[in-house]
């Protein structure tokens, strides 16, 4: 199970690298969306690993509030881009 956790953290590194290296805002948003899902699943796995379901409740709450903030941010960026373009 610890190996699984290490592998998951390894997978989490990929979108982080992408968010650091790419200048395009949409590629970054994509990477952030990926990071947010992956972290909350990792929280769930840690909850099972530690046998502490309080952590798991936090993970489920994060998942169900979800990526709403990212969706709003995407809409704002689109509007700002439209205004900047003219």
């Amino acid at each position: 199970m610890t190996l699984v956790l290490i592998a998951m953290i390894g997978a989490l590194l990929i979108p982080m690298v992408e968010a650091l290296q790419d200048e395009d805002i949409w590629q970054r948003m994509l990477a952030f969306a990926s990071i947010s899902t992956k972290t909350s699943v990792i929280i769930l796995v840690i909850a099972v690993l530690q046998d502490d379901w309080m952590i798991g409740v936090v993970g489920v709450l994060i998942l169900s509030v979800g990526n709403a903030a990212l969706m709003l941010l995407a809409q704002i960026i689109k509007r700002v881009n439209d205004v900047m373009d003219g």
């Binding site: 969306a33 899902t37 769930l44 993970g59 489920v60 998942l63 169900s64 979800g66 990526n67 709403a68």
Partner: peptide
């Protein structure tokens, strides 16, 4: 609940 919200939100 986690499964449902994962699929819908993503």
């Amino acid at each position: 609940l986690a499964l449902i919200s994962l699929s819908i939100w993503n």
